[in-house]
Amino acid sequence: MSALLEAQGLVRRYSMRSGLFGASVDLRAVDGVSLTLEPGRTLGLVGESGCGKSTTGRLVLGMERPDAGAVRVEGRPMPAPGSAEWRRLRARMQMVFQDPLGALDRRLTIGAQVAEPLEIHGLDTARVPALLAGVGLRPDQAARYPHELSGGQRQRAVIARALATDPALLVCDEPISALDVSIQAQVMNLLQDVQERLGLAMLFISHDLRAVRQVSHRVAVMYLGRIVEEGEPDAVFAAPAHPYTQALVSAIPRRGRAGGRIVLKGDPPNPAARPSGCAFHPRCAHAIARRRAEAPVLAPRATDGRAVACHLADTMLAEAA
């Protein structure tokens, strides 16, 4: 299957300066991320906050330009943000935001906002009621303003707006984390339903492992701007290979868990002061001398071909067996 979207070695740096003449410190939010999205498939991207997963989402959509690396959409390079070609491409790739109230214009009705992408791309706005119905909103809610809807309803409206132009790709950036727990499942079901019904590709960004597992066909785990493990969700979560993934998975509460939870040592990572070698080594339970010196690359594991960026990937599997 040919890739819908291909990202190669994306790097995004932000320079942080302390004072006018202070040395500027490079903060590598994304540090060499490559990923591929196939039509109709969902890639889950997990990691703790600040690991660069949202920046990856914006790079993939072309809202920011990478400092290195390239994004190709259907084989063609991503046009410059704001250019006419880039704007046309928006009809093919859309986004669902974390905060639906912030993403909606509070002075326009839901109907007007769902109609907006259709107007922008010169399509027929008669589809609006069908779009609203498709996400479970009533036709009369088209006349409502964002503040008159509940959080879940607003997120449905954002999803309807994103789907208006029949995109081939939907990037969901933490789509449920701002919602009440009782609403989260509904929105997750809606996203999964929409993905299957419309056959669109989805990049699902979240820190919620269970949500990622529910919707994803593949999953990638990010740590400090890099993907440290990638594979089938069931396999990754059942037998995580990277020590960081192991720690994440062990933190999921579950009934009758036998093993203890792996508690990570040390502070959460600071992207401005990236540890040498394997970025995870200061917090890793298995840190070996080599990890400090040398950064591991994401490579298929010898036994089952799962991609892992860890010096110990093969050793640990052998121990576990």
């Binding site: 912030g102 509070r106 922008i120």
Partner: peptide
């Protein structure tokens, strides 16, 4: 940065539309 204008821009709206129809009324 995070709000409605960024969302509308990402829908493919021209700067005229973003500023005239969304930011200015707000």
């Amino acid at each position: 940065a995070q709000g409605y204008a960024g969302a509308v821009r990402q829908l493919g709206a021209s700067p005229w539309r973003v500023y005239g129809r969304h930011i200015l009324p707000n």
